[in-house]
Structures are given as C-alpha cells and as structure tokens.
C-alpha cells in the first residue's frame, strides 16, 4: 500500500536526519544543560521508535492477513470478547515504559534546574535578562555593565540568568546551551547555563509577545575567559552610563540595535524579586532574597497597598519564599 511505503520513507528519513543532527540546533549542544536535554530527547526517540515499530508491525500484519479480498467467501469472523492476558500485557509493558521515562524525566529535570554538575564550586556569573517590547536587556550587576540585544559571557563558567519582563510573557531561549524559561513581569525566574565551547549562538524569545515577536532575537556569544575580561574592560572604559531617562526611552522603543552601557538599570528599576516581586509560584529554591534590597523605589512596579503587605510578610519569612504560592 502507498501509505505504508510513505510512512517507511518518512521514518527512515527521520533516522538519517537524526544521525546528521548538526543542523538541528537542539541536538547539537554546546553546554552541559543542552547536552542533558539532547540525550533525553534521543533516548525518548529511540524508546518511542520501538513502540511505533510494535504498533506498525501489528498493523501491517492485521491489514495484510485479514483483508476481505483474501478471505474465503463463506468466512464468518468469530465473536471475540477480548483476552485477559493480552490486555494485561499491553497495560503492563506501557506502565514499565512510562515508569522508566518518569525516572529519566525527574532526574534530568532536576539536573537541568540546578547548576550543572562539575560547576557547582565556581561562583556563577549573574546576568539579569529582561524583555521589553521586542528586545532584550542584559544587566551584569556585579560588573556594573548593561547590554541590549546581545550577551557575552565566558566559557566553562556557570551563568545564572535571572529572567523577567517589562510587559507580556516572553521565553528566554538559547537552544544550543539549554532549554527555555519564561520571563514574566511579576517574578524572576532563574536559568542556569554553561557554555563549554566558545562561539556565537542564536538566542531568542520563543513565547509569542505581539507584533514584533518574530524579530526578537539576540546573540549569545561565549568567549574564552581572557577575551571576556578584555571585553569587560573595554566596555567599562568606553561605554556611556545608562541613565534612567535613557532607559525609559529604550523601554518605549519597539526594536533597537545593539547597545552597551557602563552601568545597569537595576539601581533605578529593580527586578521583580525579593520585596519587589509581584507574586511567586514556588519553585526556584535558592533565590537570592537580599540582593539590592533597601535602595529601591517602587515607582516602576506600581504596587497597591495590599501587595505591599504581602511582600512584607514575605520578607519576614524570606528564607521560606518558595512556599509562598499564590
């Protein structure tokens, strides 16, 4: 039958493409997080291919053997209620498969949420990534610099991205370094990535956020530590300061090109974390609650009184922040 031939062709094309996955960004990882995810994906594809194979073999068998054109003219199909053992088989085997996949899922999810293995001892580079309209702002609080629409960081050092949004929900994604996470206006999400190879990687917002969404890309450039330090030095000496006025006008723009500043917006427009948070879903365990507290004004966040009360109780039990679900 034509269909079977087609499916077979499609399936083998699939396998061929899998072996040459260099042009499939997700299966061409450049860091441990993406590597874990790529392994999970390939493992699940293999398991699922097995499932497909079983179904397809049974399917082809039934369709070729029991077609009416092959049956004797007086053949009368029997009445069958079902078979206890067969049914137990096709419940038990999927249960085992799901159990195996569940273990893989929970372990790998736990792995990709943490700082990647082998990098726990290093002090992570903290970079705030905030979206506004259809651009990305990257603030390096410890280095005191800020970039727009591109982000540079050293290889072989954990980078802790802290994600939030000015406006609609966006999703921060550098496919070759690791999976995505949402950036939202009322909380900060954390994403730990490491680049093990120097290079320029595509980064983008993957969550639809309005008219200019398709162009909301940035360059993620992993540099050797030496090159990174040189770049830092250059930025600190040559780039202008980011004033509040400049930042406000930036926020209003739809798209801008690359920008570089020798100070961050965090001082006058803090991220929605700690006492500036709108809400918290629970989850990211070790959020740094005390960063920059004390020196913020709340004009950006426009909180109501009720919300302030909430954040105060929040501070009282700051360590237990993650249990404060809304």
């Amino acid at each position: 039958m034509k269909r079977k031939g087609l499916l077979l062709a499609v399936f083998s094309a699939f396998l061929v493409l899998l072996t040459g996955c260099n042009n499939l960004a997700v299966l061409n990882p450049k860091g441990p997080v993406a590597k874990t995810q790529s392994n999970v994906i390939i493992f699940s594809i293999l398991v699922m291919a097995l499932v497909l194979l079983v179904v397809y073999i049974l399917y082809i068998f039934m369709l070729t053997k029991y077609r009416a054109s092959k049956a004797a003219p007086d053949y009368e199909p029997p009445h069958e209620e079902g078979n206890k053992w067969l049914e137990i088989t096709w419940i038990a085997i999927p249960v085992i498969i799901v159990a195996i996949l569940s273990v893989v899922t929970v372990r790998s999810t736990s792995a990709v949420e943490k700082v990647p293995e082998g990098y726990e001892d290093q002090k992570p580079l903290v970079i705030y990534a905030a979206s506004s309209n259809w651009k990305w702002h990257f603030s390096y609080p410890e280095e005191g610099i800020e970039t727009v629409n591109y982000v540079n960081f050293p290889t072989d050092r954990p980078v802790e991205f802290r994600l939030y949004a000015y406006g609609p929900i966006t999703s921060f994604w550098i496919p070759q370094l690791g999976g995505q996470k949402y950036a939202m206006s009322d909380m900060v999400n954390e994403l730990n990535l490491v680049a093990e190879h120097a290079g320029s990687y595509m980064g983008k917002n993957s969550n639809f956020s309005g008219e200019g969404f398709a162009h909301m890309e940035f360059e993620a450039l992993a540099m050797t530590p030496k090159e990174y330090d040189e770049w830092l030095e250059e930025v600190k000496t040559t780039a202008p300061e980011l004033t509040e006025q400049e930042f406000d006008s930036l926020l209003k723009e739809s798209h801008v090109g690359r920008k570089t500043y020798a100070s961050t917006h965090l001082a006058f427009s803090p991220a929605p974390e700690g006492e500036n948070a709108g809400h918290n879903h629970g989850g990211s365990e070790d959020m740094d609650m005390n960063s920059e507290s004390g020196e913020m004004d709340h004009s950006e966040m426009d909180h109501s009184d009720m919300d302030m009360e909430q954040t105060e109780t929040d501070n009282a039990g700051a360590a237990d922040h993650s249990s404060h679900g809304n």
Binding site: L7, V26, V40, S44, I45, V51, V55, V98, T105, Q180
Partner: peptide, 27 residues
C-alpha cells in the same frame, strides 16, 4: 490511516511530556 498517524502524535506527546526535554520543544 488514523492508527499509524495518530500513534506518531501520541509518542511525540510522550516526548513532550518529559519536562526537561520540553524546555527545548516548548513554543
């Protein structure tokens, strides 16, 4: 036609269900 094609939809659904991998498939 439903059986083989839907099964592809089903097994890719299981792949998407795995949270760590979904970070790469989402959206």
């Amino acid at each position: 036609a439903f059986i083989p094609i839907f099964t592809i939809g089903g097994v890719t659904g299981v792949m998407l269900a795995m949270a760590s991998a979904d970070y790469q498939y989402h959206n």
